[in-house]
Design a protein around this nucleic acid. Structure first.
Length: 435
RNA sequence: GUGGCCGUAGCUCAGUUGGUUAGAGCGCCAGGUUGUGACCCUGGAGGCCGGGGGUUCAAGUCCCCUCGGCCACCCCA
């Protein structure tokens, strides 16, 4: 069937089954729900609480929170103006969560706030494998403590989710970008080092030398990588405090048996990071290899106008990429739920009986499927088969006369008669567990 | 944003050097079995050949534009 409309470029519909078409979700709804379920369960184990913030945020929150010179803010935002307000479809959710934390004085609840979220984000990039304009993230923020245990726990939380869905062979890269003074000294050294190579750098790198020097470190340009071989190393510039923090985090990760690879070139894209930075990668994903990442952002709260610092650490993960990796690794996913029983009717009177009983069985908690097109019994049986319902009730003149339903067990083909008033118990007794 | 590849039924794909009413398998619907699915047989529905323009007597086939998809760059989830 044709239509004049289609989903917007880089967005997709999540469909009930794997009728995968170009531009559809990498997985059906059942798989999405499974992943979401795992996220909720694992987060609960870490005693994290769910937070839901609007998809629409004030543009300046994002611009200031993430940094004006980041790619996200400079060219990837879906932003618009209405009246005198600037709106943006959130490109990430750490800044919004911090906004909510400050706006609602969540620190006054006492203790450390451990918050997690699941929801859509938007970025106006050219779509490709694992990259969409509307994509979905889950993540967590541990807010109100600078303790390195929060860093380690945050990373462990992220790792636990991938473990829970059964993904293997992932690489956790770890680095420290230090505190502001350490970073400032390093940036200066880096700029000095790169000065002689100015002519050999790409245009973007030259620009970044002024605006965002750290980002030059994770260039993929081979020549630039060569140049960087001899460049000063970030870790060498960490002051004692930064160094101690980093070492403690590593030790704690060891205690938790969370494996990691140190990568001194790992620099996260967003401005608000301090100290710990990490990223989880998979080689099952093509060019978009990052499953998730995060880091510490002790400066963000004040950047957003808070008088008090709110030292925090968080991670964010992409659901689409998780799904892609699951698919590539052939990870088992629970089958889609089926109806418990299909009600097939023969004749007008039986159709009315079936329609009433469908409702009755549903109030008893059974999942019931039936024909809504007045089709032949044979067609109804075919439908029952396709629906994969373990039992089918066949109701015709005979059944109405005797007051006994024909109940067919689809897997074996065996059929028996059950008195109407015994049906509920009969079915419930045979079905796994009825919710 | 830049580049490469691709775009024929719901899905996977055929479609001869441009040449009658565009095909197959699977799926869907109906019948064979006027009360029974999964197997089998028969039939049917379903395509502005992504859209627009051009070349030509003639375009699914050639050219241009556009939209979309895929992949990569960039960046990140």
């Amino acid at each position: 069937m044709n239509t004049d409309f289609q989903s917007i470029k880089g967005t997709f519909d999540i469909l009930p089954d794997t009728a995968t078409t170009d531009g559809a979700s990498p997985a059906p709804t059942t798989t999405w729900r499974y992943v979401e379920r795992v996220v909720h369960r694992v987060m609960a184990r870490f005693n994290a609480e769910e937070i839901r913030t609007p998809v629409l945020e004030p543009t300046p929150l994002i611009a200031r929170g993430i940094g004006a010179y980041t790619d996200i803010v400079s060219k990837e935002m879906f932003a618009f103006e209405r009246g005198d307000t600037q709106y943006v479809l959130r490109p990430e959710v750490t800044a919004p969560v911090m906004r909510a934390y400050l706006q609602h004085h969540l620190d006054q609840r006492g203790g450390v706030q451990k918050l997690y979220y699941i929801g859509p984000c938007f970025r106006a990039e050219r779509p490709q494998k694992g990259r969409y304009r509307q994509f979905h993230q889950f993540g967590a923020e541990i807010m109100g403590t600078a303790d390195p245990r929060a860093d380690a726990e945050c990373i462990a939380m992220m790792q636990a989710i991938y473990d829970a869905v059964g993904l293997t062979g992932l690489t956790l890269r770890l680095n420290s970008v230090g505190n502001p003074p350490s970073r400032a000294r390093f940036v200066e050294a880096l700029q000095t080092y790169l000065q002689p190579y100015l002519e050999e750098l790409s245009e973007t790198s030259r620009q970044r030398l002024e605006t965002n020097p750290l980002r030059i470190l994770d260039t993929k340009n081979e020549h630039e990588q060569e140049i960087l071989q001899e460049a000063p190393v970030l870790l060498d510039f960490l002051d004692q405090e930064s160094r101690a923090h980093y070492d403690t985090v590593k030790g704690l990760l060891d205690d938790l048996d969370v494996a990691y690879t140190e990568d001194p070139t790992l620099v996260r894209g967003l401005d608000y990071y301090t100290h710990t930075a990490f990223e989880l990668e998979s080689d099952d994903l093509g060019a978009q290899s990052a499953l998730g990442g995060g880091g510490r952002y002790d400066l963000l709260a004040q950047e957003l106008g808070s008088k008090q610092p709110v030292p925090s650490i968080g991670f964010a993960s992409g659901i689409e990429r998780l799904l892609l990796a699951m698919d590539a690794q052939g990870v088992a996913v629970p089958a889609k739920p089926t109806a418990d029983v299909f009600l097939a009717a023969l004749g007008d009177e039986a159709e009315r009986w079936v329609f009433r009983w469908a409702q009755q069985l549903r109030t008893e908690g059974l999942a019931v499927a039936l024909d809504l097109r007045g089709r032949s019994l044979k067609a109804q049986m075919k439908e029952a088969n396709r629906q994969d319902a373990p039992y089918t009730l066949i109701i015709g003149g005979n059944e109405l006369n005797t007051g006994r339903a024909s109940v067919k067990e689809m897997a074996t083909g065996e059929q028996e008669e059950v008195a109407f008033d015994a049906l509920v118990d009969y079915l419930k007794g045979r079905l796994p567990a009825v919710a």
